[in-house]
Design a binder for these strands. Structure first.
Lengths: 140, 140
DNA sequence: GACAGATAGTTTGATATCAAACAATATACC
DNA sequence: GGTATATTGTTTGATATCAAACTATCTGTC
């Protein structure tokens, strides 16, 4: 596998981004959370209360994985579940006060990640890069 | 979410590439192998016999993970271990005949992945993209 | 209204992955 | 030569993740 292979680079960057996320969560005193938990919290901050199924879309993981991740967040007190009143199959996931209180931390972590990733590239390059990545993503 | 676009896209592409790899391995009759196993086989095809420690470098995983991955490849008959004669701590990992026979498959899978990823972009865009990704990768 | 098929989530079992502790061996320094 | 330190790899325990089977509920059609 060639070291300048685009796919290889993407794998490396993805790995580093995840590692950075984990480190930052830790640094902000948010212990025991993986990047995926952060993504869920971010989705809830952005969209408010959402269904499990919507979460599988937002963070692109198997529904059984979402069940496990959400249950952990419930156990840690960041998130709560609520049965839909009209459709009993549906579960709504929302932030607790404790979860909502994470907003400043999550925003700052997001900012840190962005800063680190974009450190060496200009706004124009960023646009170029995003456009190319979108092409690749939509073609795969 | 907009501003995290690039990192988000990289995550998506990484996921799809891994999924494609797994599907292709399966399609070539190489069953029960994850992308990481493919990376190890690829490394061995490229470098010949290597030490465990070298493998952790090549595929960038924890050494205990490498132990597990290699043991599975041994169990499946693709790979063999050999103790170094002068330094007894060292283990050399090499392909068996059965492992070496995978070369054409692995090369074709690699080609397929590349083709799929580069489907919509020109050679020039590819160079631009690789350069930008390298900048990001080295800055993280 | 009953029944077939669709949908929402959970459970179960398996695997890749990591970190920390460990064992075995080699090297350096006195 | 003997002891402290470094290295190579494994073991152990925990977690995220997936796929497949399952449960419960809803919806559409006869």
């Amino acid at each position: 596998m060639n070291k300048d292979h685009i796919i290889f680079l993407i794998g490396r960057i993805n790995y580093k981004a995840n590692r950075l996320l984990q480190e930052e969560l830790e640094k902000h005193g948010i212990r025991g959370l993986a990047p995926s938990h952060g993504e869920i919290l971010g989705s809830l901050l952005l969209h408010g209360e959402v269904q499990m199924t919507k979460l599988t879309e937002y963070i692109d993981k198997d529904k059984s994985t979402i069940t496990a991740l959400v249950n952990k967040l419930v156990r840690l007190g960041y998130v709560k579940k609520r049965k839909d009143t009209s459709d009993n199959r549906v579960t709504w996931i929302g932030l607790t006060d404790r979860g909502a209180a994470l907003k400043p931390d999550i925003m700052e972590i997001s900012r840190t990640l962005r800063k680190r990733a974009y450190e060496n590239i200009s706004d124009r390059e960023k646009d170029t890069l995003a456009a190319l990545l979108m092409k690749i993503n939509s073609g795969m």
